[in-house]
Simulated scan of single mutants.
Amino acid sequence: MADDFSSVFESPLERSPDIDDLVRATMEWHFSPLTGSPYWVDRAKTFGFDPRTDVQSLADLRLFEEVPVDWSRIAADQLIPRGSLGQAARFGIHESGGATGAPKRIVDATSRRRNVAWQSMMLDQQGFPAGEGHWLHIGPTGPHVMSKNIGTLAELRGHLCYFVDIDPRWVRRCVTQGRHDEYRRYVDHILDQVKDVLTTQDIRGISTTPKILEAIAAREDVYAPLRAAVRGIIWGGTSMDSETLRLFEEEVFPEAKLAGAYGNTMMGVAPQRTRRPGDAAACTFRPYYPYTVVELVDPGDPGRAVADDEDGRVVITVLTRDYFTPPTLERDLATRRASADAFPGIELSAVRPYEGGGAGVVEGVY
Rank of each mutant, 00 (worst) to 15 (best):
W29I: 06
T265I: 03
V187G: 03
S339Q: 11
G97M: 04
R62N: 08
G133N: 10
A130I: 08
T238A: 01
A307R: 14
T292K: 05
M146N: 04
L226A: 06
G36H: 07
G205I: 05
D279F: 10
G364L: 07
A102C: 10
L333F: 01
G300P: 11
V361H: 08
I216M: 06
I346F: 02
V23G: 05
D4K: 15
S57Q: 04
D42I: 06
K45Q: 15
A224L: 13
R337I: 05
T274F: 11
L136F: 10
R173P: 00
H30S: 11
D188L: 13
P103I: 02
P51S: 04
E355D: 13
L13T: 02
L61F: 10
F285H: 03
P277K: 10
A340P: 05
R185P: 08
G278H: 11
M1Q: 07
G178S: 13
S11C: 14
I216T: 07
Q177A: 12
S72D: 06
F163P: 07
R15V: 15
L136I: 14
V294Y: 04
H137K: 05
R24H: 09
M27T: 05
R246E: 05
L245E: 11
Y289A: 04
V315L: 13
V67T: 11
M122Q: 11
D4I: 14
G127V: 02
V293C: 08
M146P: 03
G142L: 12
E250H: 14
W135D: 04
P38W: 00
L153F: 12
R275F: 10
E249N: 13
Y323K: 08
E132T: 14
D4E: 15
T26Y: 03
R286V: 00
F49E: 01
G127S: 12
A338C: 09
E155M: 13
A261G: 09
G303W: 11
A229M: 09
D20G: 11
F9L: 14
D221G: 07
N264I: 00
I190C: 08
I316L: 10
T244F: 03
V306T: 13
L258H: 12
T209F: 02
Y183C: 02
F91M: 03
V362W: 09
D42M: 09
Y291A: 03
R321W: 02
L258T: 10
S147P: 08
Y183G: 06
G356C: 05
S37N: 09
E10W: 12
R227L: 07
T335V: 14
E155W: 12
W170T: 05
V318D: 04
D70K: 05
P12E: 10
S339T: 14
D70P: 03
D60A: 15
C174H: 01
N264L: 13
S96L: 03
E243S: 14
E214M: 15
R105N: 02
E65S: 15
I93H: 02
Y162V: 06
T328G: 05
G48Q: 13
F9S: 00
M27I: 08
R231I: 05
G312E: 07
R286S: 00
G92L: 00
P287Y: 06
E347K: 00
R231T: 03
S349E: 02
A76P: 06
A88S: 15
R184N: 12
D60Y: 12
T46M: 12
V164G: 01
L329W: 04
S147Y: 04
